[in-house]
Design a protein around this nucleic acid. Sequence first.
DNA 1: CTGAAAGCGCTTACAG
DNA 2: CTGAAAGCGCTTACAG
Lengths: 326, 326
Amino acid sequence: MPSAPRPARPTLRDVAAAAGVSKSLVSLALRGDDGVAPGTRDRIVGVADQLGYRPSLTARTLKEGRSMLVGVVISSLDNPYHTEIVASVEDAAERHGQSVVLAHGSRERGRLAERVQQLLDLGVDGLVVVSSWVPDDVLVAAARRAPVVMVGRTARPVSGIDSVNNDDERGAALVVQHLTARGHERIAHVNGSRRPAGLARAAGYRAAMAAAGLSDLARVVPPDPAALAALLDDDVTAVFARNDVEACDVLDHAVDAGLRVPADLAVVGYDDTVLARRVRPALTTVQQQRDVLGARAVALLRERLDGRNDDVHEVLEPRLVVRASA
Amino acid sequence: MPSAPRPARPTLRDVAAAAGVSKSLVSLALRGDDGVAPGTRDRIVGVADQLGYRPSLTARTLKEGRSMLVGVVISSLDNPYHTEIVASVEDAAERHGQSVVLAHGSRERGRLAERVQQLLDLGVDGLVVVSSWVPDDVLVAAARRAPVVMVGRTARPVSGIDSVNNDDERGAALVVQHLTARGHERIAHVNGSRRPAGLARAAGYRAAMAAAGLSDLARVVPPDPAALAALLDDDVTAVFARNDVEACDVLDHAVDAGLRVPADLAVVGYDDTVLARRVRPALTTVQQQRDVLGARAVALLRERLDGRNDDVHEVLEPRLVVRASA
DNA sequence: CTGAAAGCGCTTACAG
DNA sequence: CTGAAAGCGCTTACAG
């Protein structure tokens, strides 16, 4: 069924013509400038409504130099932790009348770099990077064009960009403390990641194990069935995985191997994603303050826009969430 | 550490001045117009590169009337099915040099309506709606401003908007056929949703059960432990949930109740999300062609932009994915 | 092959 | 209290 062709949308000039005043006056009236006579204002607003006038954000952006757009760069949309961060950034942005432009890069450096460029060309007022895969030099270059805040960790501090992340070392320590309090001594850490958050969690694990006088059973491997078998050979009674997704893998393999969790093997994750509540046994895990991460990221962007010029790195306290798996 | 203040980015005028030519010529040269002398072109391109010039998409949008932005409206980011659709739309959009602006609405009608407005004000070239919660009149109004395509179903066809979705009735029939082939006769359908996709799956289930001469065991309830207990009292041997998320709930409650899946109870989901592979036993489910959904949505938008004026509704064939749970 | 001019839809001094 | 003008950074006829 053919529908009516799209009508040209009315502009300020149309409203001005219909109201019999100048464009400037319409602009002033619509923005609520108090130098406009109340009667005139009401009449103009009425005409605008009636015409269905909506200001062009594009024109406004060109004029003002601010787009009210926040770019969000994310490695991939398949890890719930990342999408949950995106949601929290969007909530925070929306509270300030900003919109989120999303770019995901399939965990591929070249593509991520391109997408960053694309967002900058779009004129975003700031960039929230939720991916440790964006090369440092890309971040630095981006920061020359717009404020950049990293949600999570970079390998080393990158000059000119802000960051907000949870304290991964501390989170790992909370896990180890919980497991030792439950009587575990053979506690393995399965973590094949070379990403900054992964390394920090491994470091936190090692430090906590050392502090407890226990042997380091960190394994730099993916959470596959072979890895699990090797751990069992090693009399491991508890596994701390580097995140919820991999903890679920461990859980799956344990079930497949006929183990009871947590009786035969305790399993702990990290991130407290939707997965953690969804699987059985429900996952004991570490909760990053997601909403705070998003809100702070947006706030840091605004501070930069308002002129702050020194780098800020915020670190949030993680919290252990105890469920059935450990 | 204070960093260098953000430098003003170079404009066409800066490049023109540096190259000693007019703005128009720079524009022509950079866009690869063949009416520019090769030597001049190369020189201009060189100067532009060296200055780090990047065209302002905002200015271009204002001039051209196209923003290269695709708006995506999604109910919420917590159902993996929806985020996977967003990823597929973004992939498709990016292949055409378009970016995705994301708006999620927490499954709240008023908020969704606002977000749609916001996207339109931004000047998106089209809107992909991945939410059945956006009121029809909002869709109709939106379609007057930009092409709109619904990924999924509306309660009734909405004039002026395109749609692409999988055949939910057919998907439900595939499930019933699979279960009957496995010898099940007491097959329940747990589906408390009044959304169009939910209703269509229920209808497909009923029709297939009737065709097989089996009693209708549809339950319009949420997948909670009480519902499960009631089903077991009813001698149900297989449960078809309305989607993967709810199938996981059923799985969880079954495990909690000490049942073996699929020996004591077979469980089937819908959507083939990441969850389906993640849980144990892995979920038998129905796969919608996600990548195709996203690609077709973007293609339908482009067709509208290219002048198509009649409504198109595409329906894709679903496919059963058999795993361990049924 | 190149340049001057107009215009996309706004906002903001600047006059009156 | 209101209007005319300039300008944000582009692109596109139109001249030459």
